[in-house]
Design a protein around this nucleic acid. Structure first.
Lengths: 135, 135
DNA sequence: CTATTCCTTAGAGTGAACTCTAAGTCAAGC
DNA sequence: GCTTGACTTAGAGTTCACTCTAAGGAATAG
C-alpha cells in the first residue's frame, strides 16, 4: 500500500493532480486514518489513465468509463465499456494518421532547410510549388 | 485574394480564430479599405499552422518561428528556424511513439472485451497479470 | 434607399486541466 | 516535547486556446 507521495513518485505525477483525479471520479483509493492508500492495482490503473490523458481522452470520458465499471455488479456494463474503448481507439487512430502526416510535412521542411545550409540564397526561390513559401 | 469569411470556409476555421491568430502574430494579411485580404500563400501557411496546432505546437512557438521569418532580410535566421523545426519534429516523433504504445494498449483491452462478449463472467478472473484489472 | 451581410475593434467570457493556497491535523525522528 | 514533513479539505488562481459580445462602419442585393 502506497501513500499519495509514493504513488506520486511512482507515476511521476503531482499529489495535487492525483487528488484532483480522485475528485473527478477517476480514482477510488482506500483510506487509513483518513489518509489515502493505493495498492498495485491503483498504480496500474493510474498509469493507464495517464496514458489515456496523453492521448487526449477527456477526463469526463474516462469518468464515464469508471462509472460503468463501478456500476458492474448491479448490471452488465461490458457492452458500454467496449463501445467507449472502441470510440477512443478510433480517435487515437485518427490522431496517429494526423500526426504521421504532419511529421512528413515537417521532415520535408527540415530537409529543405538542411539543403539550403550553410549557403542561404533568397529562400522563396528554392521552394517547390507545393510549399510556395518556406515559412 | 480572399476575404476572412472565404479563408474561413477554405480552412474550416472560424473567422474569430483567424483574427485571434493574427493578434497572436501568426498571420499578416494585406488590407483593403481596412479589411483583411488573404492570398493563396496565406491559405497555405494557415493550413500549415493548423497542422502544427493539431500536433500541439504552442502558439507562442509558432510565433517565434514567424518572427524569425519576418526578421529575415535584416539578418540570416535560417539556422534558428531549422532548430525550431527540428525541435518540434522530435516532439512529434515522441508523440507518435506515445500514441502508438497507447493504441496497442487500447487495442488489447478491446480484444479482451470482445473475447468476453456476449457471455460475460466475472471480469477480473479473465485478466492477464499485466492487466491486473480490466478497468 | 434600405435591409442584409460582412467587416472592424477592444475586451470579456468559457472550458479544460491542472496548480496552488490556507488552515489545520497527525505521526515520526531527535 | 517539539520540529519537520506529510497528510487533510475547500476553494481560489492560472494557463491555454479559443470563443463570443457589443457597438458600430462599409459594401452589396433587391
Amino acid at each position: 500500500m502506497y501513500t499519495i507521495s509514493e504513488i506520486s513518485r511512482l507515476t511521476d505525477t503531482s499529489a495535487h493532480t492525483i487528488r484532483y483525479y480522485e475528485k473527478e471520479g477517476l480514482l477510488y483509493p482506500k483510506r487509513q486514518n483518513g489518509q489515502r492508500r493505493y495498492d498495485d492495482q491503483d498504480v496500474t490503473w493510474l498509469r493507464f489513465v495517464l496514458r489515456l490523458r496523453e492521448t487526449h481522452m477527456p477526463i469526463e470520458q474516462i469518468r464515464s468509463y469508471v462509472t460503468l465499471f463501478l456500476a458492474h455488479g448491479e448490471q452488465d456494463t461490458t457492452r458500454e465499456r467496449l463501445a467507449l474503448l472502441e470510440a477512443h481507439h478510433a480517435n487515437v487512430l485518427a490522431q496517429l494518421a494526423a500526426l504521421h502526416e504532419t511529421e512528413r510535412m515537417i521532415a520535408e521542411k527540415v530537409d529543405t532547410y538542411r539543403r539550403l545550409h550553410p549557403t542561404i540564397p533568397a529562400l522563396d526561390v528554392v521552394q517547390s510549388s507545393e510549399n510556395a513559401s518556406v515559412n
